[in-house]
Amino acid sequence: MAYFWYSAVLLGMAVVTIVAQDGNVLYYFLCAFCFCLEDLKVDCGRDSVTLRWGAAQSQMDTSLLRLGDCYPSSISAGEAMFQVEFSDCNFSRLVTGDTLMYMNELIYMSGPKAQLKSFSHPVVCSYERPADWAPGIFDPVFYTYGEGDLVFHMELTKDDFSGPHLSREYPLGSFIHISAAVEQMVHQPLLLLLEECVATTTPELQSEGPVHPIITNKGCLVASKNSNSKFEPRQRTSEIRLSLQAFKFVVGKEVYIHCSLLAWDPSGLDTSKKACHYVKGHGWVLLDDPYHSTLCGCCDSSCEPWKTSGIASGKHGSTQSAVLLGPLVITDNSPA
């Protein structure tokens, strides 16, 4: 029988100061902001867990919830859901006596000026230890980070990213959905970024011929400035999804999309390692942490690497790969 271990969650505490009318007396009140744990529902399966968080307070942005290093599997109004295997998301396993436990943390990553502060909460699935269970043979791995042996994937997908797109034709204004992923093998968790993407009329990048910029300046989705193109919320750090609005480039002819992918340490973002898109009314927004969108401030100029105190820096392994998509055809069915 699996069960979930609850403990109190204290999200933050603020001191409110009130000045009396005569200006001489100060009154102090402690205000605690706490979530009711009834908003958190956990279903521990045999090899996986399903977790739902329904935000009771409107100031919570459920897209900022993380289970270990995993992003929500789905996000709807006021709710985030995780459906993950114990082999993912940096779950740890503990065996004590007759009990087998899988442990992780639910983390809320808010910004320094947000009303609702960051918090974490333990997530534990506990089971009776199977009678035939035995620990695996110890096989030490001596990698601290890796720079090779990574496998990159990139494809044109259906609207819901559930599989490959079945047609190579896209009407002008419709969305070209692109999914990319990196198989991490024995590496530490990696963040996949799209550094550069351009559209051309040939499968080779040539100095001559038309070129349509999509992503430039080390991760800036310039196509989002004049269209509804955007990065989609991540499902995993090792994946990235792009909804690209079909553009008027060479209508009716074959188009190829050339991209440069970068696998990077998730804690090592800077102005040259990022994923930014333009949100109307807000400006440039950092996909992985909107509160550090200052990293996107160079998207309208030139992005050079620089260190930031807001995100950890140091030695970060990286691997790059060039990927080609296509051919695809953008059609225009509007009256002449």
Results as ranks from 00 to 15, higher is better:
52 R>Y: 09
67 L>V: 03
75 I>C: 11
68 G>A: 04
66 R>E: 12
77 A>D: 09
59 Q>D: 13
81 M>T: 14
62 T>N: 06
70 C>N: 01
54 G>D: 12
51 L>S: 05
78 G>W: 08
81 M>N: 07
78 G>L: 09
80 A>C: 06
71 Y>L: 07
53 W>V: 15
58 S>Y: 04
71 Y>Q: 08
75 I>P: 04
54 G>Y: 06
59 Q>A: 11
58 S>V: 11
68 G>S: 08
78 G>T: 05
70 C>H: 01
66 R>H: 14
51 L>D: 05
61 D>T: 07
64 L>P: 02
65 L>A: 00
75 I>A: 06
74 S>T: 15
54 G>W: 08
54 G>F: 10
81 M>C: 13
68 G>F: 10
52 R>E: 15
70 C>T: 01
61 D>E: 14
67 L>S: 00
76 S>D: 12
64 L>K: 13
61 D>K: 02
67 L>Q: 00
73 S>G: 12
74 S>N: 10
71 Y>K: 04
75 I>M: 10
68 G>H: 06
53 W>N: 09
77 A>R: 11
61 D>G: 00
65 L>W: 05
71 Y>F: 15
57 Q>W: 10
69 D>S: 04
53 W>P: 05
62 T>Y: 01
60 M>S: 01
55 A>S: 06
70 C>P: 07
77 A>P: 06
64 L>S: 11
60 M>F: 12
63 S>H: 09
63 S>R: 15
81 M>K: 14
79 E>W: 02
71 Y>C: 07
81 M>A: 15
63 S>G: 00
